[in-house]
Design a protein around this nucleic acid. Structure first.
Lengths: 229, 229
DNA sequence: TAAAATACGTAACAAATGTTACTGAAATAA
DNA sequence: TTATTTCAGTAACATTTGTTACGTATTTTA
């Protein structure tokens, strides 16, 4: 269990909670570490989710079962990734995906009840746990809203503009590095890689940006902003 | 205050909490009903949000300030609509929008602290309030994920397919009405109205659906599912 | 260091979607 | 009822983005 705590004390869910109190939470909530092996399912589509999980060791694949029967990996969860946090609280708790272990893995499963029943001692760390959960859910909403505002842009140039402006704001600089390669960025913006390359080149020709590999320089902020509107 | 309770007792935030306990919550949290007049701002862009609000009377416009200076109404909030619920808990609590009263309005403002401090009595209804908030946030995440899966479809036909299949699943019928007109649906799918009309016609020609105004009949479920994959 | 693999840019062409403008049908108002 | 307004379908053309294929630069591996 010490290994578990060493991992999860870095998790946002346990922020500002010390190791002793984390231990109490795990005990009080009847949390357990479960072991899974290659291809074993943690849960399947339409299962009712009543626990949140944290990956302690190994990797998990979140798998979408297509109508055609083909299976597509939606995302991969690694050490300290949290899952199930939206499903356990929402009105319809059925999972839309399978969650499958990729190789051997260990997972901490935390039952639902710890988040809705305060213990009678009214411990401060229990409040903090729920507060952390509220922050995690809210941050996810903000992140999804930001992603939506990118996908809602009318043109690819607009999407690029919104994306670059968020980086400009975050770094507070006019020269910065993009944290994704072209393939990843094109998937994030929901276009093909050659389309993205072409448009970045066009924007460079038009004097809006300069770009080489992952390094971007914003040359005409006003026009970039106009594109993002 | 009785009028206020008559309104908000229908709100998801107060689900399974009786009128007496709602009254206690409002008192214990120092909630107040504020009055606003035409064009008065409830909060402005970059304000730090420390209260959730519920519209008791009138209408509010959530307004996006574009870089160009033009102002665009993102959405309109009406009686019993909740706002600020994600911003008060997230890591960066600054609002990206202005919230402005459209005509006279009355708004119940509920301070942040009620959601993070259990009162010493450990009242059941207080637990229920926080539980309701967790459900509201989680449902919003699920809704945004669904919307993302529509926008992520590669073609318009795919987006239409995803949308129709969610309606098919919800109504459990092969003939149903769409709750939006063409203009609204085209905005929801992020395309222009003529493009939507054209594609719906094409899908009808191809024998996948039959459509007249808002009435849709799914004629070839398998092909519709293949499109949504 | 050389060889192999990967990442990126580009170009020609195809396909999808946007734009504009017009029509008739349906709903609403007078 | 008739007139008016709103809603929806269509068509021609413009623009944007996808597809495919290839060359070159960069990074990784042996």
């Amino acid at each position: 269990m010490n290994e578990t705590i060493r991992v999860i004390k870095e998790n946002q869910l346990f922020e500002s909670i010390n190791e002793n109190d984390i231990q109490k939470i795990l005990k009080c909530s009847n949390s357990v570490v479960e072991s899974y092996h290659e291809n074993q399912a943690i849960f399947e589509k339409d299962d009712t989710i009543v626990e949140v999980g944290i990956v302690i060791e190994g990797k998990l694949n979140l798998v979408s079962q297509k109508y055609s029967g083909t299976r597509v990996i939606v995302t991969t969860l690694e050490q300290n990734d949290l899952f199930g946090e939206a499903l356990i609280f929402c009105s319809v708790k059925k999972s839309p995906y399978d969650l499958v272990s990729s190789g051997d893995s260990k997972i901490l499963m935390i039952p639902y009840s710890i988040f809705i029943n305060m213990c009678s001692e009214l411990c401060d760390f229990h409040k903090q746990l729920i507060n952390n959960m509220l922050t995690i859910l809210s941050d996810k909403i903000i992140m999804l809203n930001n992603k939506m505002s990118i996908l809602n842009a009318e043109t690819l140039r607009g999407r690029i503009a919104v994306y670059l402006l968020t980086l400009q704001k975050k770094t507070n600089a006019f020269i910065f590095n993009m944290p994704m390669n072209r393939q990843q960025l094109s998937e994030f913006l929901n276009v093909t890689r050659p389309s993205l390359s072409r448009e970045l080149s066009n924007m460079q020709k038009d004097g809006i940006i300069e770009i080489y590999r992952s390094t971007v320089k914003i040359k005409d902020l006003k026009r970039l902003q106009a594109l993002a509107d």
